[in-house]
Amino acid sequence: MWLPILALIVGFCAIYLPNKITLSAEYSQYVGVAVVAGFDSIIGAIRSVIEGKFNDRIFVSGFFINALVAALLLYLGGALKIQYVALAITAAFVIRIFNNLGFIRRYVVARLFEKRLISGEKTFPEP
């Protein structure tokens, strides 16, 4: 459980601490949508783990391809002079994030306080 969080910190430090690495402002929005896509993948993964449907290949490919396609769409939107493409992409991912987060929250609340499975969670494997 702590390994992913440790990896998050290590990855952050690896880029943040060296002074030489900088990102020019024009690429910042691409990284932005990639970050949102990444968070969506992580939250989705937590949900799928809870559901017992986790598949590592789907997860890894989802992360990279979602981030890539999001950046590509953003580029395309910029090339076609469509406004607010970044906003639309972000909104799509955020909706997914909240969906999955709601599921996770319900699961955690059920585990913590109610000690019983709410309907629709019968497929959980016993810990």
């Binding site: 992913p4 952050f12 880029i15 990102l23 968070f39 809870i50 590592d56 890894v60 959980f124 810990p127």
Partner: peptide, 29 residues
Amino acid sequence: LPKAQPWMLPVTIVCLALGMLVAFMLKVS
């Protein structure tokens, strides 16, 4: 949580990448 060990490695890799991306956001010149 379920003792689903197989998710550990991919999630770690993705978290590493995500941490780097977040750091990139803060390094905007």
